[in-house]
Amino acid sequence: MTTALGFRIDASACIGCRTCVIACKSKNGLPPGRHFRRVVEYSGGGWIPDPEDPTLMAPSGIFAYCLSVSCMHCEEPACLRACPTGALRQRDDGVVVIESSRCAGCRYCEWACPYGALSYDPSSGRMAKCDLCIDLVDGGEEPWCVTACVTRALEVGPIHELRERYGSLDALAPLPPGERTRPRLVITPHPHGQLAGRGTGHSSNPERDLR
């Protein structure tokens, strides 16, 4: 599987604008409440009495960054293992796709995936997910999230090439450590990026009440 495809996200350039999210919704026809791609916000630090002026407060280690995440088309996909009907399968190019006609709607995959990549469609009673825009990629084009990004922080390509160029970091807090499913993901860290599983901050999406 040397030609397996993966994503690179540049967390140092992500402004959290959700353009990729809307582009994805547009391409995949997803109404509010459903998504294949999300932007995760992570922040931390706090306020202390200003050491130079005790009448004031001063920021102490305040940081924030965003990660745009979708299906990671993992090398060891947890969803695939959890699926009792064999509806999920991995193509030769590593893209994890779902054969909707075989999906029973049990939602085990949704529960198994540590990236929240699977989306239940209440109108059909079946699951759906990011397919890396294979209709476009097969024709030599790029996925819509990639061409939508206003800071050019998303990239798709053969994962070994991405790893050669950008290193092997595949997780940052609040994502789970990469060992679990071996995501095909390369992250260029934000200067304040924190190690997965060892972060001092917290997820801070204002819209997290939706999930």
Partner: peptide, 17 residues
């Protein structure tokens, strides 16, 4: 617009302090 209402919830922002 529904997509935008979902993505940006018109939250009221306050300091943790």
């Amino acid at each position: 617009v529904g997509w935008l209402r979902e993505s940006f919830p018109q939250e009221f922002i306050m300091s943790s302090v």
